[in-house]
Design a protein around this nucleic acid. Sequence first.
DNA 1: CGGTATCCACAAAGATACTG
DNA 2: CAGTATCTTTGTGGATACCG
Lengths: 111, 111
Amino acid sequence: MKKREYNCGLDAAVDVVGGKWKALILWALHAAPRRFGDLHRNVQGISEKMLIQQLREMESYGLVHREVYHQVPPKVEYSLTEFGVSLNTALIPLGEWGERHRATIEAIPRD
Amino acid sequence: MKKREYNCGLDAAVDVVGGKWKALILWALHAAPRRFGDLHRNVQGISEKMLIQQLREMESYGLVHREVYHQVPPKVEYSLTEFGVSLNTALIPLGEWGERHRATIEAIPRD
DNA sequence: CGGTATCCACAAAGATACTG
DNA sequence: CAGTATCTTTGTGGATACCG
């Protein structure tokens, strides 16, 4: 990531939720706390590296909580914090917009 | 941009509004139609290249309308389409979220 | 199971110079 | 004024192999 100092709140928010995976992970955690492997299956196409990387980033933002259970086999559970829930709530209208115009968006030609 | 086919509407929406500049440009156009140079001054830090690139992309999405006035000196005015307005509306809660937590977000340490 | 560590490809963004 | 062209830098994400 780059500079701090935003011109408007939207700028800041897009910086937080931007990138290829964060919105998807947020969405996957929205329903219920999930284990690492569970998330990996749920967020289709993501590599373990990217998953852990994004999770750590979101954890440092305070959006996600990481709970380690010292067991054999190991178990780590990820869940949204209150802050994460608030972000998810703010994202609902955007998600609905995307859902409503999905066909249009998918039809856009790109290189 | 990469693949089409999204897992959820949020995914699609973030793909559309993602990147460093689109949200800012959308915001700048939200208030009123603007000319190229006007936008360039309003969206601080953007290069002419990035501005035109993002505008063209958003135009191809159908979010932005480009009106050329054949004059000397040249005048081109950009405005939001209905589609663009609908996106902007969906972004309002996110913008408010970002505004509310701006201090928190800016305080996050990054490499 | 839940990660780390490297290396690498490609796309996004920046700098600079020039044009109808 | 409103772009275009080209080059360079940076960042993001993917592949693969290995560890507690």
